[in-house]
C-alpha cells in the first residue's frame, strides 16, 4: 500500500507528458486552422510553417496552442478527448448500437473467453500427458518450448481465411487464435507445476500406499496451482491480443480490432485511441479477475501467506 503515492505520481507524469507531447504533434494543424479562421499567424506561408519544428511553431504562435487539445482528427488526441469519446461510446450509446464500444468490446471479449477456455483446457490436458508419459515428455516438450519463439500471431490472417473457406465464421476462428496463444504458456507452466512436489512428498504419499490417481488429485494438482495461475495471467492477456489481431483480416466489421482498423482507414485517431484504451481496460480487468481468483484459491489452500 505504501507504493500508492509513487504509482500515482508516475501516472500523473505520464499524463502530463502526454499533454505536453500533444503540443508539437498537433500544432501545425492548429496553426493552419487559425490561419483559415482569419487570424494572423507568424510564418504566413504554409510551406514555411511546414519546415518549422513543432516547438518553434508553438512559440511563434502562442495563441494557437489552445487549439491543439480540441481538434476533430488530431495526430495525438489529448487524454481528455479520448476519455470523452470513451464515455460517449460506452455510456452514451445503447449497447446494441454498432457505435457502442461495449458492443464491440463484448464481441472481442466473448472470443477471448471462449479461446482462453479452450486453450487452458487443452494445455492442462497436454501437461498431464507430458508429466505421466515419458515418451510424450521427450517428444513434445522441446517443440512446445521452441514454439514460444515463433511469431504465432503472424498466422492469424491465414487461420481466419482458411476457416472462412470451410464455412466457419464469426466467433470460432478468433477463438482458435486466442486458444492457440494461451495454450503454450499454460502447458509450460502446468508441467512445471505438476513436477513441483518434491521427492520427499511423493515418497510420503507412497508410504500411505496412495494410488496414481490419488497422487494426482491430492498432491500434484494442488501443488501446481501457483504455477497454473501465473501462466493463466499470461495466457488471458495473450488471448485478448489474439482476439484483437484475429479481427483485423475479417474486413473490419465488429470488435475492438475492427475499430482499430476502421479508425486507421479513416484517420479517426480519437476512435483508435479510445478502442486502444478500451482494450487496455479489458486486459487489466481480465488479468485482475484471474488475480483475484488466484488469491482466493491460494488462501483457501493455505498457500498464500
Amino acid at each position: 500500500m505504501r507504493s500508492i503515492l509513487p504509482v500515482l505520481s508516475v501516472i500523473a507524469a505520464i499524463v502530463a507528458l502526454w499533454y505536453l507531447a500533444a503540443v508539437p504533434m498537433n500544432i501545425h494543424q492548429a496553426v493552419t486552422d487559425a490561419a483559415r479562421a482569419g487570424q494572423t499567424v507568424h510564418p504566413p506561408e504554409a510551406a514555411a510553417r511546414r519546415d518549422l519544428g513543432g516547438w518553434r511553431l508553438a512559440l511563434e504562435n502562442p495563441g494557437a496552442v489552445a487549439g491543439v487539445f480540441s481538434q476533430a482528427r488530431p495526430r495525438l488526441p489529448a487524454p481528455h478527448q479520448v476519455l470523452t469519446e470513451l464515455w460517449r461510446t460506452t455510456a452514451g450509446k445503447k449497447i446494441t448500437s454498432k457505435r457502442s464500444l461495449v458492443f464491440h468490446g463484448w464481441i472481442t471479449l466473448s472470443a477471448t473467453l471462449l479461446g482462453f477456455a479452450i486453450g487452458t483446457a487443452m494445455g492442462i490436458l497436454l501437461a498431464v500427458g507430458i508429466v505421466y508419459s515419458r515418451a510424450m515428455d521427450m517428444s513434445v516438450m522441446p517443440w512446445a518450448i521452441a514454439s514460444q519463439t515463433i511469431p504465432i500471431l503472424a498466422i492469424a490472417p491465414m487461420i481466419i481465411v482458411v476457416l472462412n473457406s470451410v464455412g466457419l465464421q464469426g466467433l470460432l476462428p478468433k477463438a482458435i487464435i486466442s486458444a492457440y496463444l494461451s495454450f503454450f504458456p499454460v502447458v509450460v507452466g502446468m508441467v512445471k507445476g505438476l513436477r513441483a512436489p518434491e521427492a520427499m512428498q511423493l515418497d510420503l504419499l507412497r508410504t500411505y500406499s496412495a494410488s496414481k490417481s490419488e497422487m494426482f488429485w491430492k498432491l500434484r494438482l494442488p501443488a501446481s496451482m501457483p504455477y497454473l495461475f501465473a501462466s493463466l495471467k499470461v495466457g488471458i492477456a495473450a488471448s485478448l491480443v489474439g482476439a484483437i489481431v484475429g479481427e483485423l483480416p475479417t474486413g473490419a466489421v465488429r470488435g475492438l480490432g475492427a475499430r482499430l482498423l476502421a479508425g486507421s482507414y479513416y484517420g479517426q485517431t480519437i476512435q483508435i485511441w479510445s478502442a486502444l484504451l478500451a482494450a487496455a481496460v479489458l486486459a487489466a480487468v481480465l488479468v485482475s479477475i484471474v488475480g483475484l481468483i488466484e488469491r482466493a484459491t491460494l488462501r483457501r489452500m493455505g498457500l498464500n501467506r
Partner: peptide, 20 residues
C-alpha cells in the same frame, strides 16, 4: 512507482498502437 505501472503496461495489448 514505475514497477507496478510497467508491469501493468507490459500486460496490455500494446500491439494495438500499431495503427497510430
Amino acid at each position: 512507482g514505475l514497477l507496478p505501472v510497467g508491469n501493468f503496461i507490459a500486460a496490455l495489448p500494446i500491439i494495438g498502437t500499431a495503427p497510430i
